[in-house]
Design a protein around this nucleic acid. Structure first.
Lengths: 129, 129
DNA sequence: AATAACTTTGTAATCAATACAAAATTTAGG
DNA sequence: CCTAAATTTTGTATTGATTACAAAGTTATT
């Protein structure tokens, strides 16, 4: 399915800018920061503004099209894959790796309605071990 | 067990300042920010510096005495309870609630060594529903 | 084309977190 | 004790990710 179609399904108007940003995120599974997305796209889109990247990430995230990864304290990262999976942050090299996991059996109290679940691990990755 | 004893067990010298900060966190299970801890303690500890709070949280967190909660993008929160449990962030009121959960069955690849696991949910809490 | 609605942009501001070096405190040796 | 070394704490200045905001640009509707 095209990025434009996915955006439309979530009630987001698929402007050129939004499709370009979302396309980039779908094609680069590196969990980029807003700044990295901006730097990657701005050579080919000279009028792109960093604020637009932030606006777009916020919009897509709030509509559930992407996931916002807050495993790092300094800055948010983004992931186009919304399937259930975990994120592993290496303390040494700073790399973020996906891993398979099931959702845990959570005892969310009555009346609480979660819309997003995140599973984070922090430690040392294979290369740094 | 006293806060001083716990710090010592983790190889942290239990200075008055560190014990005071850790005591506060153990007694206030509100997941406070560094700024909230500083504001709460500073009337009774006029020479306390906010930098010291940040330093202490970083030290205690890196030694596994406390948990750093990064569920919010804006600022870190801290938790003296290191038992397995999840954190629920309400999008509307901003409250953070503990919930019981088991660790999920995670397929961490060979060679990866996690030392911390976090389970976050974001949604709407009982009061806001 | 005109108007309204929405999107994008650039600049300035916010504010959590850190760097850094001086001051204060604690420890250990004589 | 007394001094020097090691550690901890402090205050100020800085960094840097994110947001506020209003102007400019674009798109849709009549």
């Amino acid at each position: 399915m095209t990025s434009a179609q996915i955006l439309q399904q979530h009630g987001i108007r698929p402007s050129l800018t939004r499709v370009m940003i979302y396309d980039y995120l779908r094609e680069h599974r590196t969990h980029p920061t807003a700044d990295e997305i901006y730097s990657a796209l701005s050579p080919n889109a000279p009028t792109l503004s960093k604020t637009t990247v932030y606006n777009t990430m916020k919009l897509l995230s709030s509509e559930g099209v992407i996931k916002t990864i807050t495993i790092e304290e300094q800055q948010a990262r983004f992931d186009a894959c919304t399937d259930v999976h975990g994120h592993f942050l290496c303390r040494d090299c700073g790399g973020i790796f996906d891993f398979d996991t099931e959702l845990p059996s959570m005892k969310i109290p009555e009346g609480f309605a979660p819309s997003v679940t995140e599973i984070y691990c922090i430690g040392r990755c294979k290369g740094c071990n």
